[in-house]
Design a protein around this nucleic acid. Structure first.
Lengths: 276, 276
DNA sequence: TTTGGCCATTGCAGCCCGTGCAACGCGCCG
DNA sequence: CGGCGCGTTGCACGGGCTGCAATGGCCAAA
């Protein structure tokens, strides 16, 4: 829309792939050196890029502060935090909070489960805060997609089918029609199960958090490595997860169950049954 | 430098203080609505801002990815990571890596110490990754300032004295002349001690990491809550810290000790002594 | 249902400012 | 010393940014 800003942001993105000299940066976005210089200077004044002693530019520290503020702007996070902590505390499994943004799942918060020392020393990667994953690939995504207006869902699925390579359906992803069937099932039961954060070594349950208008605005998930927690054990926690999601919904000023859930009685009954 | 980009970045920063409608956003930076609309649209196309269903704008998820990339761009981080982990592993105290950026300390990495359950449940805030603190306030900052060219140091100290309220000297900070004396001491001994990350409940030791030209490019710190680790215990780890910083310097292709350290023999001897 | 207000959005003319060329300074290497 | 590469600066041109004003859509009050 705005050429100058567009170029500045493009140059910023290009620096994400590694530091660059002025000339390199100019070449990356195809403008004259002097143009790139002015853009980079402006970005530098705001702290978005930093100039190294060797005269090369790299991304600046301002991004950290802004990313932090971006998290804090999303107030569902504040409301949900104690509930997530409580759920994790009780069973020791990892609990996460996510929203849908621009068609992909954005993880907002995470309370790490208490597991015996990590085997391979890689406790990260899966659903870390700030991570994005394609919506069709995870249980969390399915819950969020299930409540999308038909129009937006169609647009999203078209994009999924169109781009075969680019963010195409990864492990567990399905073509549009298959996914539609899954979403119908999610609507029917009010929750979703499946591979959690992209890695087939983690299984996952997801339940919607519902806002004031009856739409799901976020999703709460509980997940665990299947070796440590067999399917059966995680499934037993479903009522607790639904209960937590419901409590967050109410605390946020929403309805306890989503508009589209055709099984509100069932889900609620499951919770009550497990309480006795 | 570039008016349009400047405005776009200002609007982005203003969104950090909370979501805003188009009109609010325009008012915050003092431009016409239509101008703000174009800027916000451009930012939105790049994912830097996100439009909520209620038509308000907030910071977008792209910032997370870019902040992550910003971390990865700083390659000293990759080099240092295993050394930090090893140092923490051996003694169980928190180890951090930081650099100087635009006159303040930017924390790049952190390996959390193994402490008995947090008393008040607030394990964060102090020196989390991506946090910035004024350089004059911490041991890490003093180490980094000690190697600054006289010209830059003067500029920095002037700014410190000029702005009384804005980022003025917090707990432990000193006026320019006092700080200069401290920096001289740091140069003499080759390391610094003091309050770690802004909180007087944590004590801290800091040692420089030296690049190819003999300048300190980063700092490695070790810190612990004084109740759990009295000064004496932390001080006993000084040789290990210096040894780690030296190892990182060598791994990065730098010199083992900074140009300005007048006590290289002393520090090295301390390391050797503790090794026996 | 109508009406009015509020806000986002769009079209448009004026002119500001962003752009690229070319020249300059500086450090480096042969 | 002189050539080269790169960052930086001055400047004229015109593209695109700006702000005004008008339109459209939504909601609430009448």
């Amino acid at each position: 829309m705005s050429q100058t800003v567009d170029r500045a942001l493009t140059i910023l993105a290009s620096l994400g792939e590694g530091p660059a000299s002025l000339e390199q940066a100019a070449a990356r976005i195809g403008v004259h050196k002097s143009t790139a210089l002015r853009l980079l200077r402006t970005l530098q004044e705001h702290g978005f890029v930093h100039r190294q002693p060797d005269h090369r530019y790299r991304l600046g520290g301002r991004l950290f502060g802004l990313a932090q503020q971006a998290l804090e702007c999303i107030d569902i996070r504040q409301v949900a935090a104690p509930y997530l902590a409580s759920l994790c505390e009780r069973y020791g499994h990892t609990v996460q909070l996510a929203v849908l943004e621009d068609g992909s799942v954005l993880y907002l918060d995470r309370v790490e489960g208490r597991y015996p020392a990590e085997p391979s020393g890689a406790p990260e990667a899966a659903g870390r805060i700030g991570t994005r994953v394609p919506a069709a690939a995870s249980a969390a995504g399915k819950v969020l997609l299930a409540d999308l207006p038909e129009e937006q869902l169609t647009a999203l699925l078209d994009g999924l089918d169109d781009g075969p390579g680019k963010a195409g359906p990864p492990a567990g992803g399905l073509r549009a029609d298959g996914l539609r069937a899954e979403l119908a099932a999610v609507r029917r039961q009010g929750w979703a199960a499946g591979q959690g954060g992209y890695r087939d070594s983690v299984d996952c349950l997801a339940a919607p958090i519902v806002g004031a208008e009856g739409r799901s605005i976020a999703v709460c998930t509980i997940s665990a490595p299947p070796r440590l927690a067999p399917d059966a054990e995680l499934s037993r926690l479903l009522p607790e997860l639904l209960c937590t999601a419901e409590a967050i919904s109410l605390a946020y000023g929403g309805s306890p169950t989503p508009r589209w859930c055709e099984n509100r009685c069932g889900a609620r009954h499951a919770v009550r049954a497990s309480r006795t």
